[in-house]
Structure formats: structure tokens, C-alpha cells
């Protein structure tokens, strides 16, 4: 039986880079999709609203695990053999987009209606209202729930191990299989997750304070 050594530590840290990369893809892809969905949800066009609601309901009602199976195994049956990273990245984007879309929709609607009226009366068009008046205020409201959800997503990237993707949790399992020191290995794995998530929470607090001062 192997001892838990620096080799394992380096292996886990390297795997953590994949966890970070998946989280980044989820945040960027899901963020872009989420913004589009949030804007569609509050659109004046009923067709956009209905499509966004349908998408959000379906994806929110589906486990991330099932999305991963669908994009990896399902698409490969259909002839599209996706790299595990691509499959995991796509699944996370679709998943995170649905949740961020709904969170941000709530934040946009939390900006008082009177802000729309005041900016309308000053002659701003709808695009200018969004970019200068509504979204900047919605961002301040959205900071805490968005970061809270992102912390969840960082941890949910561990599900990508199910389609053969060796990220942090999967790497922990592999190391444990060879060292058989589960407490040591998984405490170390947990510490790395914490090291990724804690700065996010701190950044959220700092950002909130900053945005609050400038309001």
C-alpha cells in the first residue's frame, strides 16, 4: 500500500485545475445564457417569455447528472462523440444558465418599477434603461445569490466524474484507492474545495460593500 505523498498532493492539485476550469466554463457559459434568459423572461414579447419559462422549468426540473448522461452518452449514441470536458462544460452551462436566469430575473424585477418610469420620462429608450438604470441596480441585488449559487456549482462539478472526467473528487477517489487513507485524502480534497469557494464568498462580501457605498 502506498503512502499519501507529495506525488498525490500534486496529482490532486492538478485535478483541481480541471475543477476550476469546469467552474469557469459554467460561470461564463451559464452567465451568458442566464443573462439572455433573464432578459427574455422580462421581455415585452410573449413568445420570448414563454420560451424562457419553458427552458427554465425543464432544466431546473432535471438533475445535473441526467444532463451529463444526456450530453455524453446520449449524444454519442446519436453520433456526436463529445470529449468529457465538452460534455461536462455544455451540461453545466445549460444547468447554470437556467438557475442564473431565474435568479437574475428576480433581481431585475426587484428594481422598483418607478425606476423604469423615471428613466422613461427622461426619454431613455429601453436599451438605455437596461444598461444605465436597471441592470446596474440589479447587479447589486444579484451579487449575494449569484455567488451563493456559484459555490454550489463549484461543488457540483464533481458530478462530471460520472462521465469519466477526472476532476478533484474523482482524483481523490483514485488516490484513495491506492493509499487507502480516506480521511486524509478526502479531508485534503475538501480543503481544496474550500480554498476555491471561500475566496468567492469573501469577494461577494467585498463587492457588495463596494456596490453599496456607490449607490
Amino acid at each position: 500500500m502506498n503512502q499519501f505523498t507529495s506525488v498525490h498532493v500534486i496529482y490532486l492539485l492538478e485535478a483541481a485545475r480541471w475543477t476550476l476550469l469546469l467552474s469557469l466554463i459554467a460561470l461564463l457559459g451559464g452567465g451568458i445564457l442566464g443573462l439572455a434568459l433573464a432578459l427574455a423572461r422580462v421581455s415585452r414579447l410573449p413568445v420570448l417569455r414563454v420560451m424562457a419559462i419553458a427552458y427554465i422549468q425543464i432544466v431546473q426540473g432535471t438533475p445535473l447528472l441526467v444532463l451529463l448522461f444526456l450530453s455524453y452518452f446520449g449524444l454519442s449514441l446519436a453520433g456526436y462523440r463529445l470529449d468529457p470536458l465538452v460534455a461536462a462544460g455544455l451540461s453545466l452551462t445549460f444547468y447554470v444558465g437556467a438557475f442564473l436566469g431565474e435568479i437574475w430575473r428576480g433581481c431585475i424585477e426587484a428594481v422598483p418599477r418607478t425606476q423604469w418610469e423615471a428613466s422613461d420620462c427622461l426619454g431613455l429608450n429601453r436599451f438605455q434603461q437596461y444598461t444605465h438604470v436597471i441592470l446596474p441596480q440589479a447587479v447589486r441585488i444579484a451579487t449575494a445569490p449569484t455567488v451563493g449559487f456559484m459555490v454550489q456549482v463549484v461543488k457540483n462539478t464533481s458530478l462530471a466524474s460520472i462521465i469519466g472526467f477526472v476532476e478533484l473528487t474523482r482524483a481523490g477517489q483514485i488516490v484513495n484507492n491506492s493509499t487507502f487513507q480516506p480521511f486524509l485524502v478526502f479531508l485534503f480534497v475538501g480543503a481544496i474545495y474550500f480554498a476555491i469557494c471561500y475566496p468567492l464568498s469573501v469577494a461577494s462580501r467585498v463587492l457588495e460593500r463596494k456596490l453599496h457605498v456607490a449607490r
Partner: peptide, 10 residues
């Protein structure tokens, strides 16, 4: 001009 001022707080 509105009752609740409706200035842009940010």
C-alpha cells in the same frame, strides 16, 4: 416629477 423622487440611487 414624482412623489417618490425616483432618483437613480447608483
Amino acid at each position: 416629477v414624482f412623489q417618490s423622487y425616483n432618483l437613480f440611487p447608483h
